Computed example of a mutant assay.
Amino acid sequence: HHHHHHIVIFVDFDYFFAQVEEVLNPQYKGKPLVVCVYSGRTKTSGAVATANYEARKLGVKAGMPIIKAMQIAPSAIYVPMRKPIYEAFSNRIMNLLNKHADKIEVASIDEAYLDVTNKVEGNFENGIELARKIKQEILEKEKITVTVGVAPNKILAKIIADKSKPNGLGVIRPTEVQDFLNELDIDEIPGIGSVLARRLNELGIQKLRDILSKNYNELEK
């Protein structure tokens, strides 16, 4: 009896706004680049929307005040966010993804989940091959690198993609799910930030499996 698993491909466009700026301005490539949302109050008021990896290495993070980014990375290039341009790139990439999927869920401007189960006739290895092909096609058509996770469900596909950034391809096969879950750190679960992770660590929960030994009321509190 052939076991039919869902095959989900999660696609995450790498440092998207900054990467689009690099595509349109090749002279930025390889230099620290920060895309900013200027609030207009003063010349530097506002926040960082996205930084490329060169800027991240210097400590620049999304959400950080622009003024703080400028202190830690004075040599970086700072550009204003151009949402309509990124949306046009995103729409083209989403349309391309849509062609490869039975169903698509666009999660944000730079993330999408594809159910490809029927497209690859339930064959997981073919799903991985399709993920490779998708990466290649986006790179050829739009010059954009993406990180992809392939797994039997959405959450696992996202987790393995997050662990494979940038320009990666992460895979959790159906046979690997149990081992993967057993070893998963609690803070690697989307939605569990540093504050909640710390609280859970204090309760003796380091790994996801540690919740199995906790009583529900204690966790609920």
Results as ranks from 00 to 15, higher is better:
F124W: 08
Y53V: 06
I109D: 12
A51H: 08
E22C: 12
K31Q: 14
I128P: 00
V148F: 02
G193K: 02
N52E: 14
L114S: 02
Y216K: 11
H2G: 03
L208N: 02
N201G: 13
E129F: 11
H5M: 15
E129T: 11
S213A: 13
Y216P: 00
K57D: 08
Y113D: 06
L139Q: 14
I9D: 01
T175Q: 09
A73L: 06
F180G: 06
A151V: 13
D102Y: 12
G30Y: 01
A157R: 01
N25C: 04
A131S: 05
D110W: 07
D210E: 11
P26G: 07
Q71E: 15
L139V: 03
I134V: 15
V60P: 07
P80A: 11
L156T: 08
L33F: 04
A18V: 09
S90H: 08
Y15W: 07
R198S: 14
D14E: 11
A55K: 04
Q27M: 14
N217Q: 11
I155H: 00
E218T: 15
V23S: 04
M64Y: 04
P65C: 05
D162T: 11
D110S: 04
G193F: 05
F89T: 05
L208F: 15
K135F: 09
V171D: 03
E183A: 14
R41A: 11
G40P: 03
D115L: 10
K133R: 14
V106R: 12
R198M: 13
L114H: 03
Q71N: 08
R56C: 03
E142I: 01
V150C: 04
G63T: 14
G168A: 10
G122H: 07
I93G: 07
T44L: 02
K29P: 02
E188R: 09
T50N: 04
L196P: 00
Q178E: 12
G59T: 12
V177L: 07
A88R: 02
Y216Q: 09
I159D: 04
P26K: 10
L200S: 03
D12K: 05
N98P: 07
K165E: 03
L58N: 02
E125I: 10
D12A: 10
V20Q: 05
L203D: 00
D102E: 15
E105Y: 09
Y15P: 00
E140N: 13
A107H: 01
K99C: 12
G127T: 14
F89S: 04
K207S: 06
D210L: 13
I189V: 15
N123L: 12
L156H: 03
R41K: 15
P174Y: 03
V195D: 01
E54A: 12
P166E: 05
T42H: 04
E125L: 06
A161P: 08
M64N: 08
T50E: 06
K135W: 04
N153I: 14
N182P: 00
N98F: 13
N153E: 13
P74K: 03
K133C: 01
K61T: 15
E176Y: 06
L24W: 01
G46A: 11
R199I: 15
A62G: 14
A107C: 08
I9Y: 00
A73D: 05
P190Y: 06
A161W: 05
R132A: 00
S108N: 11
E129C: 02
